[in-house]
């Protein structure tokens, strides 16, 4: 598989605080990579730099074989993003929101694409509903529809199941994995829900104080650390945070 995203020595400083510290990684095409780490570890900062919301202090982001910094808008057409911390305008209908983003991303045959996504995420009945009236689960599914509108090659998901009950979270997880498999989408996925990471991700990268402390297949990492679950590994690494040998760094 070819490499879709390469990050070289990426650093983000806020004054004397280093949020991301000379971090390097690469993500292959079609791979789903989970970013794990305690609050303030640097996961969201990393994502924001990949999305162009934040300018790195130093280092380079290579996307689709080109510098992201030099081709931001061109690259953003081939990417998408959804986060539990951003919403679609609550006072527009579901359809108006999707039409708006379809036009922004220059989606061809937008009507058919919107219909198919609404059907796929089982919210077609809400097409004319005001977005603000949707439940958390419906709203998350709508955000995913928006994120998949342009058939992104790279999809960044920031805690998409954070506000969902276990049942809806499970449905969203299953759907995300299914869509990724069907369409071969490369994903970067942050979550504090270990079930998300175990179910969805091919590889996890554990970040602590802006640096990668370990990475590899979730099941192998649990074995490597001789813990009973990923959650136990998380607690251990979040409290200890020393860099360990990577299990299967690609």
């Amino acid at each position: 598989m070819s490499t879709l995203l390469t990050i070289e020595e990426l650093t983000k400083d806020y004054g004397s605080t280093t949020a991301v510290d000379h971090l390097s990684l690469s993500v292959k095409k079609g791979e789903i990579v989970g970013l794990l780490g305690a609050n303030g570890a640097g996961k969201t900062t990393l994502m924001q730099m990949i999305l162009g919301l934040l300018t790195p202090t130093s280092g380079e982001i290579i996307l689709f074989g080109e510098s992201f910094h030099k081709h931001r808008v061109k690259h953003l057409k081939r990417m998408n993003f959804t986060s539990t911390y951003s919403n679609l305008p609550s006072n527009l209908t579901v359809e108006q929101n999707l039409k708006f983003f379809a036009q922004i991303y220059a989606v061809k045959d937008a009507k058919r694409k919107i219909d198919s996504l609404l059907q796929e995420f089982e919210i077609a009945d809400h097409r004319k509903s005001i977005t603000g009236n949707l439940s958390s689960g419906e709203s998350t599914r709508l955000n995913l529809c928006k994120a998949l509108l342009n058939d992104p090659e790279l999809l960044l998901l920031d805690e998409p199941t954070a506000s969902l009950d276990p049942d809806i979270a499970d449905k969203v997880r299953t759907k995300v994995r299914q869509v990724a498999d069907e369409k071969g989408i490369t994903m970067l996925y942050t979550s504090h829900n270990m079930k998300d990471i175990e179910t969805i991700c091919d590889r996890l990268i554990f970040i602590h104080k802006g640096r990668i402390v370990t990475q590899g297949n979730p099941a192998k990492i649990v074995k490597q650390f001789e813990r009973g679950s990923l959650e136990e590994v998380f607690i251990h690494l979040a409290r200890d945070g020393e860099i360990v040998e990577e299990t299967d760094n690609p």
Binding site: K74, S86, Y105
Partner: peptide, 18 residues
């Protein structure tokens, strides 16, 4: 401010909008 109030600002600025 509409984009700030509706928490849509990130969606706009991660879209291909100059």
């Amino acid at each position: 401010l509409e984009d700030v109030w509706t928490r849509n600002l990130l969606n706009i600025f991660v879209a291909p909008v100059r």
